[in-house]
Simulated assay, not measured.
Amino acid sequence: MMRVLIVEDEPTIARAHHSYVERVPGLAPVAVAHTGRAAVDAVAKAARAGTPIDLVLMDIGLPDMSGLEVAAALTRIRPRPDVIAITSARDLEVVRAAVAHGVVLYLLKPFTFAAFRDKLERYLEFRSALPADSAGVSQQDIDRAFGALRTPDTRIPTPKGIAPQTLEEITRVLRAAADGLSAGDAGRAIGVSRVTAWRYLERLADDGVVKRQTDYGRTGRPQVRYVWGRV
């Protein structure tokens, strides 16, 4: 089992990522850090204890330091963990800096569980393609390992009727609503129909990052509200 550290400053999202990792065979979420300093300390402590972290799921926008600064600090710890960036940062310079700091994969928020699982499965393929010992690797080993990471994402096309930009807008307004939103509320907030909003909210609920709550109101007619958070 690969030991995974989740680094995310927003507790609700951290719990969702923890739940996601639990659903991927071969990976075990062993700790959560909400700041960059806590992340470095957790990796160093695990290494000293002889139970090193294999993989860090790194948010870039942390409150005390950049996730890229954390990634750079982790290169000085042995054994060094791999890093997958999980972020909404789309700036080209950030992406280039992530590569320069040894980030092996880059996953943009928001995403479905299928996309998350695909990235982690690619990472597991990458690790399994490399020899277990440190005697050395062949060109074939290297090509096979990096091929697992870089192969075009043909296995998980965007689900029919799901547009990434709309999914991001739905996610944004839902996260800002402490008491959750109905499909009608969400649709009005971003300028789409109730049915369209409902489809995206159901997708998020099926992926486990949104909770469904049934309100009966004064008339007794049930209305489903969607609340951001771990199911």
Score class of each variant (00 low, 15 high):
R3L: 07
S19G: 15
A16T: 11
R80P: 08
A73P: 11
S19V: 06
A189M: 07
T112M: 05
A28R: 14
A148N: 03
A42R: 00
R117W: 03
R23I: 08
V227E: 08
R230Y: 14
D215V: 14
R15W: 13
T51F: 14
S134T: 07
P81R: 00
L5A: 01
A115H: 10
H18W: 14
R175A: 10
R90M: 13
A205E: 12
H101N: 09
D133N: 11
L57F: 00
L124G: 09
M1F: 09
K160H: 15
L108T: 09
E22L: 12
L167Q: 06
Y123F: 12
T171R: 04
G147N: 04
A71G: 01
G102V: 02
D215F: 11
A176H: 09
A163K: 12
L62V: 00
R23Q: 12
V103I: 06
G191M: 07
L68D: 00
E125A: 11
G61L: 12
L130A: 08
R80W: 05
F146T: 07
A98D: 01
G208V: 03
V32Q: 04
V30W: 06
V231P: 13
G161R: 05
T171V: 11
Q223A: 15
V21A: 02
V209E: 08
I77A: 07
Q213H: 14
L105Q: 04
A71P: 01
V227L: 12
P63W: 06
K119F: 10
R194V: 11
A100R: 14
S88N: 13
S88M: 13
K160T: 15
A100K: 14
D118F: 10
R15Q: 14
A39S: 03
A178S: 12
G67H: 01
A129Q: 05
D185I: 01
T214I: 15
T219N: 15
E202H: 07
A97H: 08
A42G: 04
A163W: 09
T158K: 13
A39H: 00
L74C: 02
S19N: 12
G26F: 04
A28Q: 14
R212G: 09
Y123M: 02
T151E: 04
A85Y: 00
Q213L: 15
L107M: 07
E69R: 09
A49C: 08
A114Q: 04
E10C: 02
D185H: 08
A71H: 01
E125Q: 09
A44I: 11
A97Y: 01
S138G: 12
R117M: 03
I60D: 00
I60M: 01
D141M: 09
S193Q: 02
G217N: 10
H101A: 11
V227F: 06
G191E: 05
L201H: 06
A186K: 00
P11K: 09
T151N: 08
R221K: 15
T112A: 06
L124Y: 03
